[in-house]
């Protein structure tokens, strides 16, 4: 085991970030585990111009949901609104239950539901931070293609599914 560990630590190419699973993006275009939160953006069902910014904080499990214009979500009081539920469901699809639960530091019973495993503290986190991370995310799609040699990418071979 020690030999395996030493070998892993002395390799240039190892998988550090587990691959994410593909999922439909229409309703929840953005999900991430970052800044100590599961956070993301949920499209409004009624207004195509509006999105909700929702998050669950790791450790405290505080819930937050508001529009991108910082208006609090009317459906969030005492229990998770549908936006937070959708965010949690999509996060589990994207990262797998294990990784999400570990990040949020929450115990989920086998075949259990993530949201039902949380306490229901509501604590608004600023939507602007998450929304600007979403815009930054979208901005990648506007970065032009490159045909430079980019030798750096030899450290990042595409890998198939974990076997």
């Amino acid at each position: 085991m020690d030999a395996d560990r030493a070998a892993w630590e002395q390799r240039s190419v190892v998988r550090v970030v587990p691959p994410v699973e593909p999922r439909k993006l229409a309703k929840v275009p953005f999900v991430e585990l970052a800044d100590g939160r599961l956070q993301g953006v949920v499209s409004s069902g009624s207004d195509i111009e509006r999105v909700y910014v929702s998050s669950i904080t790791a450790g405290t499990h505080a819930l937050s949901c508001s529009t991108n214009n910082n208006r609090p979500c009317g459906a969030l009081h005492g229990y998770a609104c549908k936006h937070i539920r959708m965010l949690a469901d999509e996060a589990v699809l994207q990262y797998g239950m294990d990784r999400v639960a570990r990040y949020l530091r929450v115990e989920v019973a086998e075949h259990g539901d993530l949201i039902n495993s949380l306490n229901r503290l509501v604590e608004r986190t600023p939507a602007a931070v998450v929304f600007s991370r979403f815009l930054r995310h979208l901005a990648y799609l506007e970065v032009p293609e490159s045909t430079e040699p980019l030798a750096e990418l030899h450290w990042f071979p595409a890998m198939g599914a974990v076997r």
Partner: peptide, 29 residues
């Protein structure tokens, strides 16, 4: 090249945060 390199490194560090609790660090990489 520098951009994709730092972006890749930052993503790995972000996924490993806080690194102090990480069991093994990919030291060579």
């Amino acid at each position: 090249g520098l951009a994709v390199l730092l972006d890749g490194l930052a993503a790995e560090l972000r996924a490993s945060c806080p690194v102090s609790t990480m069991e093994h660090v990919p030291a060579r990489r």
